[in-house]
């Protein structure tokens, strides 16, 4: 727990890609059991922001505090702390050479050091959690996009993380496959998982989000209750973004 009671706290995050200033001093806290939804135009830096939370993107400047530990400190055991932060990607990024169960259990065995038996048991349980108990032996290439993404969610959940990051997880899916993934995420939220979600699914943001953040050009312009923000956005750029997307 961070001093302010948050699970994750970003302080003054700046990120430069070469000459491109992507994040311009972002401060942000994620409280336990919160579902924080991040929206914003493409190129606004929302994915980069999410990826700094587990240090897939190293911030050029600023601090990432996770349970009181500064992840930007080089002395930190990042590999260990990453086991407590799950992430699901837009492109699934399943390991194609392993079947669904293998994808879910590889890190259980090799990182957490579970026995094959324990790993298999937990893996089956997590696949069941996302509604894929029958697909343990299927390889990613044999699964639909929605099923692959649910395996990816199960893979992250199997580590029993304290925080789950979702990086536009439905953007690469065919429209008819979006809902099955959103359903899993909604159930996860109702079970009390702390989540940070970058998404274009405004229905999901409104129904499931407990807090919403609008980011544009690397700056958080507005944050608040999703329903209120949708009903009466304060900032002019939030208004124009929402009017274009809704």
């Amino acid at each position: 727990m961070n001093p302010d009671g948050s699970l994750v706290r970003l302080e003054g995050i700046h990120k430069w890609f070469g000459a491109n200033h992507v994040l311009k001093g972002v401060d942000l806290s994620v409280m336990p059991r919160e579902v924080m939804v991040v929206i914003g135009p493409s190129g606004s830096g929302k994915s980069t922001l999410l990826r700094t939370i587990n240090m897939l993107e190293e911030p050029t400047d600023g601090k990432v505090l996770f349970e009181g530990t500064d992840l930007t400190d080089v002395r930190v055991d990042l590999d260990h702390l990453r086991t407590e932060i799950g992430i699901v990607f837009q492109q699934f990024n399943l390991f194609p050479q392993m079947n669904a169960l293998g994808n879910v259990t590889i890190a259980l065995r090799k990182v957490l050091g579970l026995s094959d038996e324990e790993a298999r048991e937990r893996g089956q349980q997590e696949l069941g959690h996302v509604g894929l108990e029958g697909k343990a032996d299927a390889y990613p290439s044999q699964l639909s996009g929605g099923q692959q993404q649910r395996v990816a969610i199960a893979r992250a959940l199997a580590m029993r993380p304290k925080l789950m990051l979702f990086d536009e997880v439905t953007s690469a899916l065919d429209p008819e496959l979006v809902q099955e993934v959103l359903d899993v995420m909604q159930r996860l939220a109702s079970e009390g998982m702390t989540m940070a979600v970058v998404t274009h699914e405004m229905g999901f943001a409104r129904e499931v989000g407990t807090r919403m953040i609008f980011i544009d050009e690397g700056v958080i312009l507005e944050e608040g209750d999703p329903r209120e923000m949708f009903a009466s956005p304060q900032h002019e750029r939030t208004q124009s973004f929402l009017s274009r997307i809704l």
Binding site: N54, L56, D79, H80, R82, T83, I85, G86, I87, F89, Q91, N93, L94, F95, P96, Q97, I106, A107, K110, V111, L112, A152, R155, A156, M159
Partner: peptide, 30 residues
């Protein structure tokens, strides 16, 4: 091999060498 494979492996807590050994090399060798 797509960059996302390394990111996925690292995000699960694997070290660079573990990610190479379990995620990247099996695909690269093929």
């Amino acid at each position: 091999i797509e960059r996302g494979q390394m990111e996925a492996a690292r995000s699960l807590g694997m070290s660079y060498l573990q990610a190479m050994r379990y995620a990247i090399m099996p695909q690269a060798i093929r």
